[in-house]
């Protein structure tokens, strides 16, 4: 499946060092941020470039398809 399908990011908070690199690389418009200064995890990312996963120094960002529920049906 193409990476261009919208995704929801999950952050493993245990490993997150709050470095902000994911926000720095994110090409989304302003505001795609969580309350903990990471990329947003509460809404779909329709760009799905996954650069945030690449830049994370501790690889603690992962994703799942945003339309997972429709797959289940």
């Amino acid at each position: 499946m193409s990476n261009k399908e919208p995704v929801i990011f999950t952050i493993g908070w245990n490993a997150c060092i709050n470095c902000g690199a994911c926000v720095a690389i994110c090409p989304q418009e302003a505001g795609f941020i969580s309350a903990f200064d990471t990329i947003a995890v509460d809404r779909p990312c329709d760009i799905a470039c996954l650069l945030c996963e690449d830049i994370c120094p501790v690889s603690t960002i992962s994703h799942s398809p945003a339309n997972l529920t429709s797959f289940a049906r």
């Binding site: 060092i17 470095c19 690199a21 720095a24 690389i25 690449d54 830049i55 120094p57």
Partner: peptide, 19 residues
């Protein structure tokens, strides 16, 4: 910078991931 629509995006080849 994004609020003002400035081109702030950095290339993945130019952002070092540091620890």
């Amino acid at each position: 910078g994004k609020w003002a629509g400035l081109r702030t995006h950095i290339k993945i080849t130019e952002l070092a991931s540091c620890l």
